[in-house]
Each structure stands twice: as structure tokens, then as C-alpha cells.
């Protein structure tokens, strides 16, 4: 399956290797996800879900295996670099947003990672776009 958007091969991560507390968090895990597919993931605590996510996000380095995203090997890419192409939401709703900045400023920082950049982080055109997007959420924003 070469047209896989996400292609994880042989991913292995072992914590505290060689000690009595050795814990295999990822055991030669393979996962291929075609572009546009929505996969739900189940697993008990300690099944390796968080380790898998952290490895994809670049927050920890796997011992073995590769992660391809859109055909590009991102296994050893820095977390902030791969964030260009990966979005993530956590259980804690406070983790994804900066509380002391306005909604608009938060959106602008997230948006300008790819869009063309103007001198000020927020410009009028983007601002109108954000307003439109927020309205579609229908969350009173």
C-alpha cells in the first residue's frame, strides 16, 4: 500500500530497557492508514496508545521502526517541524490554546504556519476568514 497517508512499520519503544521495570510500550507495531480515512482507536491504559501518539507527534523517539506521513519519513523529525502537517487535540481542553491571548491571536498563530505571512500576525483578510470559521462552529464564538 504505497498510497497510504500514514504508514507505520515495525514501531518499537521500550521504557527503562534492561532494568527490572522494563516496559514494552510499542511492540513492532504496524499500521497503515489510507488518505482521508477516519480510524477510531481502542485500548486499555498502558496498551500503547499514548506512546503511539507521542511517537507520531515527535514527543518521544522510537527505538525501532519508521513513520511515514504522506510518503515522507518523519521518524526523526523535530516535533515542531512535523506539526506543520499534524494537528492534535488532547483530553484537556486547556492544552491546545493560549489563555492570555485572544481567540483571534490563537487562530492566527495556528493558521500562519502555512498561509502567507504578513507583517502583523493578524491581518484583516485572515480576520474575516476566522470570523466566518468561528461562526460555522455554532459554539457562540
Amino acid at each position: 500500500m504505497n498510497d497510504c497517508e500514514l504508514n507505520i512499520q515495525n514501531l518499537t519503544k521500550c521504557f527503562e530497557k534492561g532494568t527490572a521495570n522494563e516496559k514494552v510500550a510499542l511492540d513492532h507495531l504496524n499500521l497503515m492508514v489510507p488518505a482521508g480515512q477516519f480510524v477510531t482507536v481502542l485500548g486499555t491504559n498502558g496498551s500503547g496508545k499514548s506512546t503511539l501518539f507521542n511517537a507520531i507527534l515527535g514527543k518521544l523517539r522510537p527505538d525501532e521502526g519508521t513513520i511515514l506521513l504522506g510518503g515522507e519519513d518523519i521518524t526523526r523529525q523535530k516535533d515542531y517541524k512535523r506539526a506543520l502537517n499534524i494537528g492534535c487535540l488532547y483530553q484537556n481542553p486547556l492544552r491546545g490554546t493560549a489563555p492570555d491571548m485572544t481567540i483571534e491571536e490563537n487562530l492566527a498563530l495556528a493558521y500562519t504556519r502555512k498561509s502567507s505571512r504578513s507583517f502583523f500576525a493578524v491581518n484583516r483578510r485572515d480576520s474575516a476568514y476566522f470570523r466566518e470559521l468561528l461562526a460555522t462552529l455554532n459554539m457562540g464564538l
Binding site: 497517508e5 500514514l6 496508545k49 499514548s50 501518539f53 507520531i56 507527534l57 506521513l69 504522506g70 506543520l84 502537517n85 499534524i86 494537528g87 492534535c88 487535540l89 488532547y90 483530553q91 487562530l107 495556528a110 493558521y111 504556519r113 502555512k114 498561509s115 470559521l133
Partner: peptide
């Protein structure tokens, strides 16, 4: 908002 290739929801 930046049209990522992958979205992770935890």
C-alpha cells in the same frame, strides 16, 4: 485550520 495531513484526537 492549516489543513494538516493527519489529525490525532486523544
Amino acid at each position: 485550520i492549516a489543513k494538516p495531513r493527519l489529525l490525532l484526537l486523544d
